[in-house]
């Protein structure tokens, strides 16, 4: 039983936390792909930027002595960080993507432009924050929640941190809000229409510029949320972006680019795959070692810990080759 709890703490809790981050990030990537038809490589940097904005706001709050009991200040400032990131995202679109769109540039050109935006944001973040590591929990403590399991002989507790709980809550709220927006509201339906058939959307009189703007608003605010959540769960550093953008693309592609629900499923799939791949499975085998025909090695992970991020890339490549349209195609449309 202790071993199962160890498994739960490492794989399930870790996977849910990581999966929430990937899912929220991947929704943005997939929406931008659906509406604007290009792979937005700068998404990871938009997330990092959002996290740094939240970090600055947190410092400001602490300096002003603003705090709420039981809530990490990082979460308190999240809505403001989301708004600010959204404003910057709209600015980036106006400055870099809209002129190319107007010229009728191909998706590839847009992709290269997004690399340019990546470099600019990355350079600016490093210019202001250096390349060191920052933490949201310098002056606050990250609360650990331990739940004892009322069973005989069980000594381990189920462990997770308070930010992890809040992350899952935030993700659930965001996903529900997005669901109602896309299925109930006029603009949300127009977004789906434009992802489905842009020419017909235009012919129907849908104002495509408004839809594009709404897309950036959703993608920008979700990027800020995902980035801040990641920084709260682990730590904040400028090269957060590049480690995160590929797993997020993996999640979006696994779910089928352009499909929001697929992106959520893909995010959790990649999150669980990463935590499960580096988990030491011999822990689970040890109690039944006597019944096994072979000796249980000390460590039995699918891949060594150093290869954690590689898991996402392998899944990505396998899915691209096996089913480039995503593994949920047909189920979600």
């Amino acid at each position: 039983m202790n071993e199962l709890i160890f498994f739960f703490n490492n794989v399930i809790v870790g996977g849910v936390a990581l999966g929430s981050i990937y899912a929220v990030g991947a929704i943005g990537v997939t929406l931008i792909f659906g509406i604007l038809r290009f792979a937005h490589f700068a998404h990871g940097d938009m997330m990092t930027m959002g996290a740094f904005i939240a970090f600055l706001l947190m410092l400001a709050c602490q300096a002003l002595g603003i705090s709420v009991p039981f809530l990490p200040t990082g979460f308190l400032v999240l809505p403001v960080a989301m708004v600010l990131t959204t404003i910057i995202a709209l600015g980036l679109d106006k400055g870099f993507y809209a002129p190319l769109r107007k010229r009728g540039a191909k998706p590839v050109t847009m992709l290269i432009a997004s690399i340019g935006v990546t470099l600019i944001i990355q350079g600016l973040i490093r210019l202001f924050f250096g390349s060191g590591t920052w933490s949201f929990f310098e002056s606050e403590t990250k609360q650990l929640i331990r739940i004892p399991v009322p069973l005989e002989g069980v000594t381990r507790t189920i462990n997770f941190t308070q930010p992890q709980v809040l992350m899952v809550v935030c993700t659930a709220v965001a996903v529900l809000a997005l669901h109602f927006f896309l299925t109930r509201s006029r603009l949300g339906k127009a977004m789906r229409a434009m992802a489905d058939n842009p020419d017909l959307a235009q012919v129907s009189g849908i104002n495509t510029k408004v839809v594009v703007r709404v897309t950036w608003i959703i993608a920008g605010s979700l990027a800020a949320m995902a980035g801040t959540m990641l920084a709260l769960d682990v730590q904040l550093k400028p090269d957060l972006a590049f480690n995160i953008v590929l797993p997020i693309f993996a999640a979006a592609i696994v779910g089928g680019l352009g499909q929001s629900y697929g992106a959520i499923a893909g995010g959790f799939l990649i999150g669980f795959a990463e935590t499960a791949a580096i988990f030491n499975w011999s822990v689970l085998l040890r109690p039944i070692a006597g019944a096994l025909p072979f000796e249980v090695p000390a460590t039995l992970a699918i891949v060594p810990t150093e290869y954690k991020l590689t898991v996402a890339f392998v899944i990505l490549v396998v899915v691209l080759l096996w089913r480039p349209t995503g593994i949920f195609k047909g189920a979600s449309s």
Binding site: G123, R126, G130
Partner: peptide, 13 residues
């Protein structure tokens, strides 16, 4: 030394 990343981004855009 971080400025060159920024400059590269500006040049490509």
């Amino acid at each position: 030394s971080q400025m060159r990343v920024f400059v590269l981004g500006v040049v490509i855009t």
